[in-house]
Amino acid sequence: MLGFPLFPDQASSVAARVDALFYFLVSVSVFFATLICILIIVFAVRYRRRSENEQPPAIVGNLGLEILWTVVPLGLTMVMFVWGAKLFFVIYHPPINSLEITVVAKQWMWKVQHPEGRLEIDELHIPTGRPVKLTMTSQDVIHSFFVPAFRVKRDVLPGRYTTVWFEATKAGEYQLFCSQYCGTQHSGMVGRIVVMEPARYQTWLSGETAVISMASAGEKLFQRLACNTCHLESGAGRGPPLVGLFGKKVQLQNGQTVTADENYIRESILEPQAKITAGYAPIMPTFKGLVSEDGIMQIVAYIKSLTHEGTQAKK
């Protein structure tokens, strides 16, 4: 109608909920901005100076009014806070059954790998109607994964994993932006999210021949880096066994416990001395420089696949 958009596409399960809060904020803002403008204009015109020596009466203040315009904004902002906080929790808490995809950002590109092994650059193909969780890291500076149509954004940091999730509701192509300034070609670090009906997504996934899954790629790396010589499945090795490790609590030598999540595994590969599992000697060397961020993500995928049921099924 205007020749340019005024409102972004709504293409994820949270988009309409974010917009609802946005409309509420707009309504409150329009109300108060209009109120102030009308008051200013009415007062300024009605009480304009009519003669040079006017001396209006003094009005010191009014406690009732002060209380009113303290309490009303307080009430309204608390509504905004609770509403926003609840939404925030939804936006940043991925559902358990999410499709897990990994993202490695670098100056100035997005590298995506699907669990089945398919690789993409500056593109992400996903199905509709299924939550997708991205585990992301950066190889250099801070980037930020931003899809306006999904109303989600998360910074992508070097040295750790951050996650973001969304469930696309509408097939189509949407813009992906890097929204954290990352250097010369920052504005070129864009891509597209291709949302497809689940059946078409399956066809797309199997479209590329001879790909191996992330977990299998991780297993190959695990052997090539000789991790398997210490991390024996039986538990008799020099390193702790990794089967069934993921998501469990780990007792550390210093008495603390940590949950074995993606960040913990990554840290243990790169800085093995940081958290020593109780009962094991601090003998593991660092693998910093020997394995890429993509490789670490594959090893993490492999370790995640090492469940007791999984290994039994293999046998």
Binding site: S29, M80, F81, F88, V90, Y92, V152
Partner: peptide, 13 residues
């Protein structure tokens, strides 16, 4: 207030 309201800030940040 839009920016303080974290659910909306995720989008407009």
């Amino acid at each position: 207030l839009f920016l303080a309201s974290i659910g909306v800030d995720v989008h407009v940040h």
